[in-house]
Design a protein around this nucleic acid. Sequence first.
DNA 1: ATATCTGCCTGCTCGC
DNA 2: TGCGAGCAGGCAGATA
Length: 265
Amino acid sequence: MPELPEVEMICRMLRERILNQKVISVNVLLPRIIREGDLNTIVGSVFTRVYRQGKFICFDLDNELKMYAHLRMTGTFLWQDDLPKKPSHVRVEIEFEKGTLLYRDIRTLGGIWIAENGKPPWKKMGVDPFDDEFTSERLSEMFDKRKIAVKQALLDQSLIAGLGNIYSSEALFKANIHPGRTAGSLDINEITRLRDAIKEILTAAIEAKGTTFRDFQLSDGKEGGFQDFLSVYRKEGLLCSRCGTQIERIVQAQRSTYFCPKCQG
DNA sequence: ATATCTGCCTGCTCGC
DNA sequence: TGCGAGCAGGCAGATA
């Protein structure tokens, strides 16, 4: 499940592969992946910039068009020439002058938007954890009086952009905060710990080229390495690396949360 | 305004 | 061996 580090890795690959190249042709194998606009309209355009907004990938073209992509659970971009053979579940192909970009998505929850007016597909984008604005003061304002669990607050993309289920659990463990605490109940010391933990976890995950759990793979088909450094995610019943207590799993908002009941008590 | 619930999707794992 | 149930979960949209 691509979260900020995985999306960041894909952005870096895309910059290496498709910048300043003209689109020769497109092939939409599954039409509903194109959520808005017509992919054919990008033929002949040159991609001039690729960047990330939360978990969205944003593409600037050399005209009025903008393209956006969200990978959701199982989406990814692959550079065909880097692969030994063509993968399954390819939903969209974009042929460039120097090769072909594949959009692969097993569960087809992801999507691509072509915006003629440049308008992004998201409603409200929260602060990016690597932005200077991501301070403990800002986090404190976001959480103030909020009654939702802090784990759920971390997943709210209109507050903080880029965290998903894996890194939310990991950050709370690193900050020694119980995931069930209400967001509004955290004091400034806890908020500062959490803010620092989020940045540290995401930085380490990017260094390890992301977490591969089931589906995620890098542009060349290789796997990320951060799954080897996870402390709690998917480790129910295993012993906490810090204190030896069994890791527990709870369900919050229909999603699994993993934590150490002693360290995060 | 905030909080909660549902539907979207496919592949894998588990129990019978 | 086959098969259905349960699960993985990000997000939009609906509802409370």
